[in-house]
Design a protein around this nucleic acid. Structure first.
Length: 874
RNA sequence: GGGCUCUUAGCUCAGCUGGUUCAGAGCACCUGCCUUACAAGCAGGGGGUCACUGGUUCGAAUCCAGUAGGGCCCACCA
């Protein structure tokens, strides 16, 4: 078979992915083995893969593949989220482009369009994940609007309602005038914006005096129902109880007192619009004020907007301000920076709005969720993110779960009258009719019992993700939930900690009395190299599919993880993916080298024996470190260790050491050992680079049916000989020394040289054959005294001499040695200063003092050697 | 406004409970090499007064305080 000079991922990746699928390796069923479960953070069903997904899912795949190799029953459950508001917005926009208005459709008609859209675009993202190599159990692919799943969602709603944890009530909520729905507090993003502060004067009724208020939203003056001052404000003594006249509107409103008013801000005079401001609403309640709502659901003014009726709120602001000015009510306009709430999904300016909604009472529910994270029962990586979590949990507010949308789980509440309590909560209409009939004592029919028009917040379904997907809501004792729950790791973005992570933990304790996962790994945000978040609108995100086509999935995976510690943002640049690809190619070429060797019945060279012994220990030691990094969820460190093990230790040292001359055969023993090493390395790298490792695994040896790397055992740690690792390190320093001398003096690498050694006890004599091979040494000899006319360097107090055959620059050589000498003398001085310090000797632990003493002795010896060399040069 | 967090080579980051003259990695950089596994490469090399100031200590990148500058989360000042 022809082996290509560079690795060709396109030819390999799909082949292996199909193979894995055919062998059903990704599928999991409960059995005797220890389960290892990850639930994918379900992407939006109509979403497309972006770089954030690549990062997130690569990490999950690395974890799941390693667990699978460790003999655990690995189960990675994939799926998608119906993403109520986001998807509905997309469908509405698509219809709009076709000239269809949502308001012209019935609910059923709209749903048909939505499903059509979902079926067309749904799951694209899951196919894209396959390109990445994601080893998800596709048979378990879930969707939050699946029948079973939906039933669990509704069951939970009914259950929480029965427990009194869900209630319906009129509250100030966040209103999104574009999507025309309420949204939860978490879906509101506060941003600083430049705005204007309008100072407007109101006449005090029955006088010619005026009060001046400050407002950023003059159009809400139309809904004013009071003017409020601080009772301690001496400027306004005696005004309380009087009335003020709203300019233009000419309505008379009371002047009230409340300590809420900040005397320092603006004029110290506050207009109260209970319908359009959260604080005003609270004040209105305290003072039993009237509430005048001036807005429609879409943000235009309603009948209460008088002559501005039908105008958009922002247009109305301009027009009304102008009118105030023309009529002399506008005192002044100041620039003002304030924070506005924007809808996470539509970016609409959020309108505080009084409305009847459904809420979950979070106080009690959240307690175990807080405790179990704080005491480490659920671990967060990075750990310090716990503080943010705690802060939110300790100040948790009730959760508005109703949305005025159609795409989602319809709220199972049924109304039989207009009264606030004229409803029942039931799974089906029949049941609702029965309940309602019992409640009212009347015989109600289907026309009289109507279901709530609203749907539930998306997160009210996804908070059940780890439970509902194993049937844990319907039957907490079922085999599946008992086996897979609690799951092991969750890999997600910190942005959705409150939306999702916290709520899954809450649901977990409420429904199973147990955490949903043991570890939460928070990834950072993928940014471009200018530090901007990657986004479609900025156009700064590469297309991951193209990236994988160009660099290979393995290359993308490796490049992505190379610099991605948990919680850290990741400034992404294609050069990283290049690095990943180069690494994969390096592996490929190492394989090409090994596979090119013919075996012959020759003796194993001593240098090969040493190399094999050394690499075995080195590999095992590094593997220990890699395992350790994995245990700490330091994924990029585990990768970097593997990277260096393969590139530096295996390729640059081991292979260079054992490789025979061109087209010469190798001894069977060394080749077999090398293949064994290679196999072990492929197992180590497999979670990161699944495709190339599988490919090479099969090219290294004939494999039987089912002998695939994906299901082989994770490499075990063998014996580690620390001495040999240590000796090799010294030997490699000596070799570097030789190469350095060569480079600086233009001695060709091809030309064999002599090496004289004045040895200290540190010189690893056992490594001599290795030094001879790597240093291209003609003859190596031990000498008692310095060698004349030679280049020299020192490693661990041994001196190494390379005689020169031509004239060389003695002054330069001298200067070099003098510099070394100066350094050593300075070092000795500092050590001696330390040892001369009584307080150091008395206070520092003995081991530290002894280490200093050894340093002193070594330094003295080094200086002696250097002085000798210097004398010799003259 | 409250809370959390960060500041170490050009870039991205390690550096555990203070102890190898004030320090590491990858990438980038510089210098040689197209040396038959690999130029997507090989070999060699340079580069940091560990943000600043003060304190604790025999000893601090590492602990404490303050200053400056980033970042994140939360919050109803019109």
């Amino acid at each position: 078979m022809e082996i290509p000079k560079t690795y060709e991922p396109q030819k390999v990746e799909n082949k292996w992915y199909q193979h894995w699928l055919e062998k059903n390796y990704f599928h999991s069923e409960p059995d005797e083995r220890e389960p290892y479960t990850i639930m994918i953070p379900p992407p939006n069903v109509t979403g497309v893969l972006h770089m954030g997904h690549i990062l997130n899912n690569t990490i999950q795949d690395v974890l799941i593949r390693r667990a699978r190799m460790q003999g655990k029953n690995a189960c990675w459950v994939p799926g998608t989220d119906h993403a109520s508001i986001a998807t509905e917005a997309k469908v509405v926009k698509k219809l709009m482009d076709e000239g269809i208005k949502k308001s012209d459709l019935t609910r059923d008609e709209f749903m048909e369009h939505a499903w059509e859209w979902t079926n067309k675009h749904g799951g694209i993202i899951l196919d894209q994940l396959k390109k990445l190599g994601a080893s998800c159990d596709w048979e378990r692919t879930a969707f939050t609007l699946d029948d079973d799943y939906s039933e669990s969602v509704i069951d939970v709603f009914i259950d929480l309602f029965k427990k009194g944890k869900i209630y319906r009530g009129t509250r100030m909520i966040n209103w999104d005038p574009i999507a025309k729905t309420s949204v939860s507090d978490e879906e509101v993003i506060h941003k600083e914006v430049n705005s204007k502060l309008y100072n407007v004067r109101y006449q005090i009724e029955g006088t010619d005096d005026f009060l001046t208020i400050a407002t950023t939203r003059p159009e809400t003056i139309l809904g004013d129902t009071a003017i409020c001052i601080n009772p301690n404000d001496i400027r306004y003594v005696g005004l309380a109880g009087k009335k003020a006249i709203i300019p233009i509107v000419n309505r008379s409103i009371p002047i009230i007192e409340d300590e809420y008013v900040d005397m320092e801000f603006g004029t110290g005079c506050l207009k109260i619009t209970p319908a359009h401001d959260v604080n005003d609403y609270e004040i209105g309640k305290r003072h039993k004020l009237e509430t005048i709502d001036i807005l429609n659901a879409d943000g235009t003014l309603n009948d209460n907007g008088l002559h501005l009726k039908g105008m958009d709120r922002f247009e109305a602001r301009k027009v009304f301000a102008k009118e105030l000015e023309e009529k002399g009510f506008l005192v002044k306009v100041e620039d003002h920076i304030n924070k506005l709430g924007f809808s996470e999904r539509t970016d609409a300016v959020i309108e505080p709005r009084l409305s009847m909604q459904w809420f979950v009472d979070m106080k009690e529910l959240s307690k175990p969720a807080l405790d179990n994270v704080m005491d480490g029962n659920i671990k967060f990586y990075p750990d310090n993110i716990k503080n943010t979590y705690r802060h939110w949990m300790e100040n948790i507010k009730d959760w508005n779960i109703s949305r005025q949308l159609w795409w989602g789980h319809r709220i199972p509440a049924w109304y039989y009258g207009d009264g606030e309590n004229d409803f029942v909560v039931a799974k089906t209409q029949e049941e609702a009719i029965q309940l309602a009939s019992e409640k009212t004592g009347k015989n109600l029919n289907a026309n009289q019992v109507k279901q709530d028009e609203d749907v539930l917040d998306t997160w009210f379904s996804s908070w059940l993700w780890p439970i509902a997907n194993f049937g844990g809501i319907k039957d907490p004792k079922s085999k599946e939930i008992q086996y897979y729950y609690p799951t092991n790791d969750l890999v997600t973005a910190p942005e959705i900690m409150f939306f999702w992570v916290a709520r899954m933990i809450i649901a977990g304790y409420e429904y199973l009395g147990e955490k949903p996962f043991s570890n939460v790994y928070y990834t950072g945000i993928v940014r471009d190299k200018l530090g901007r978040k990657m986004s479609k609108s900025l156009g700064n995100s590469p297309d991951p599919i193209k990236l994988m086509e160009e660099y290979g999935a393995d290359g993308v995976r490796v490049g992505m993880l190379l610099t991605a510690p948990a919680g850290n943002d990741l400034p992404f640049d294609t050069s990283q993916v290049e690095q990943g690809r180069n690494f994969i190619n390096k592996i490929w070429n190492a394989f090409r080298l090994v596979s090119s060797w013919d075996i012959a019945d020759i003796e194993q060279p001593n240098s090969s024996k040493i190399a094999v012994d050394w690499f075995e220990s080195k590999l095992n030691q590094t593997l220990t470190d890699i395992n350790d990094q994995f245990d700490k969820y330091r994924i990029s460190d585990a990768l970097m260790l593997s990277y260096k093990l393969i590139w530096d230790d295996f390729c640059s040292w081991y292979l260079e050491l054992i490789k025979p001359e061109y087209q010469q055969p190798i001894d069977a023993k060394t080749k077999e050992q090398t293949i064994v090493f290679f196999e072990k390395l492929m197992r180590i790298i497999h979670p990161f680079a699944p495709f190339v490792s599988e490919e090479i695994w099969h090219l290294l040896r004939e494999r039987k049916e089912g002998e695939d790397i994906i299901v082989t055992e994770w490499a075990n740690v063998g014996e580690i000989n620390k001495q040999i690792i240590n000796d090799f390190e010294i030997a490699s320093e000596i070799i570097s020394g030789i190469r350095n001398v060569r480079k600086q003096n233009n001695l060709a690498n091809k030309k064999a040289i002599d090496l004289g050694i004045v040895k200290s006890k540190n010189h690893p004599q056992k490594m001599d054959d290795l030094i001879i091979k790597m240093g291209n040494i003609k003859s190596l000899s031990y000498i008692d005294d310095k060698m004349n006319n030679s280049f020299s360097f020192i490693v661990k107090n041994s001196s190494y001499f390379i005689p020169f055959d031509d004239t060389i620059d003695i002054d330069a050589e001298k200067a070099k040695i003098e510099e070394e000498l100066k350094y050593s003398q300075g070092f000795l001085k500092s050590v001696q200063k330390k040892l001369g310090n009584e307080r150091f000797v008395n206070n520092a632990p003995e081991s530290v003092v002894n280490a200093e003493k050894k340093k002193q002795a070594d330094a003295i010896e080094t200086i002696k050697i250097l002085e000798g060399k210097l004398a010799n040069l003259k």
